[in-house]
């Protein structure tokens, strides 16, 4: 089968599948919920991947995911605002904190950046259960009203399509940015910062922009997630939440728009399948092992697999002649 013929249509096929998921899931709330959460994590992983495209690998994106979640949940429940609006506030709040954190991070090299972001997520969690426990509800967390009130007909479906719309918006925005001047500047900074500087690109400004926007989108994703769950606890700042977008992006393909989408689908299917056969800790062990193997043997992720297979076939045919 020649995959190349389908290539131009892949986007449309993916979109059609995404639109049709609720039809397949009709009657099964579990499938629909899993699909909705997968969409949220696609948004979140795209945010992480956008930051990675600027050469910055964050190990603490749960900080922004969680801050967006808390900001949205608290404004929605305290002031009675509709979650559809407070989600945006969650994003803006995460972006604000993201810019502050970014200011200390943008001048840092890979290791320092990774350590600092890793630390920030854990420390924000600590602050949430100690200093800010009065506002955040401590370890018990706080309630979050549903994204789409259950009075709306077909609420779970409306919610699914709403999240899908956000995802498509995020994808279009990131695509436009990465194909334009900003994408070029990111690539220049990522490959050689000194040369980028010499050609008049200010790395600090671009990195800060990436940080702010990535935090904003991660915050929106966090808010969307907790309005689905109905409550938010400080667990949302955990290392698991920081690491999922990394796992999704890397297994799919780092630095590509399709990567996080492919990775999220593949890992979610695997994850839910392993749950189906009753594994608990072993699931994490398997995912950890797969991540290690991917980094070592398939560093460009699943999206690079067709190309790899084609190259391998061509080589084999060449040998056969």
């Amino acid at each position: 089968m020649d995959l190349d013929r389908f290539r131009p249509y892949l986007t449309w096929i993916a979109l059609a599948v995404a639109l049709l998921v609720p039809a397949f899931a009709s009657g099964s709330l579990y499938l629909l919920t899993t699909a909705s959460i997968a969409l949220v994590f696609m948004i979140y992983s795209e945010a992480w991947n956008f930051l990675a495209a600027s050469g910055q690998g964050s190990l603490g994106h749960a900080a922004f995911f969680g801050l967006g979640a808390y900001a949205s949940a608290l404004t929605a429940s305290r002031f009675g605002l509709p979650p559809v609006l407070t989600v945006l506030f969650g994003g803006l709040f995460a972006a604000g904190i993201g810019l502050l954190i970014g200011l200390t991070c943008v001048r840092l090299k890979e290791w320092f950046l990774a350590m600092v972001t890793f630390g920030f997520a854990i420390i924000i969690q600590t602050l949430m259960v100690s200093q800010f426990a009065g506002i955040s509800g401590g370890w018990d967390g706080t309630a979050a009203p549903a994204l789409v009130p259950s009075s709306v007909p077909f609420a779970p479906y409306v919610q699914y399509y709403l999240i899908l719309a956000v995802l498509i918006g995020v994808l279009l925005a990131f695509r436009a940015l990465l194909r334009g001047r900003i994408g070029l500047a990111f690539a220049a900074i990522r490959e050689n910062e000194v040369e980028a500087r010499a050609s008049g690109i200010d790395p600090v400004r671009y990195r800060l922009f990436a940080f702010g926007l990535s935090a904003c989108v991660a915050g929106i994703a966090g808010a969307l997630e907790i309005h689905q769950f109905g409550y938010v606890t400080p667990e949302v700042f955990g290392t698991d939440i920081s690491f999922w977008p990394i796992i999704y992006s890397i297994s799919g393909g780092l630095g590509t728009l399709a990567g996080p989408l492919v990775g999220t689908v593949a890992v979610t299917v695997l994850w839910e399948g392993l749950r189906g056969i009753g594994l608990t800790y072993a699931r994490f062990v398997i995912v950890g092992l797969l991540l290690i193997l991917t980094v070592i043997f398939l560093p460009n992720g699943l999206v690079s697999l067709p190309g790899r297979i084609r190259a391998w076939r061509r080589r084999r045919e060449g040998e056969g002649d």
């Binding site: 190990l59 950890g288 092992l289 290690i292 980094v295 070592i296």
Partner: peptide, 10 residues
């Protein structure tokens, strides 16, 4: 860095 994350899970 990503490798270490896999190790943490493992």
């Amino acid at each position: 860095i990503f490798l270490s994350i896999g190790l943490i899970y493992l």
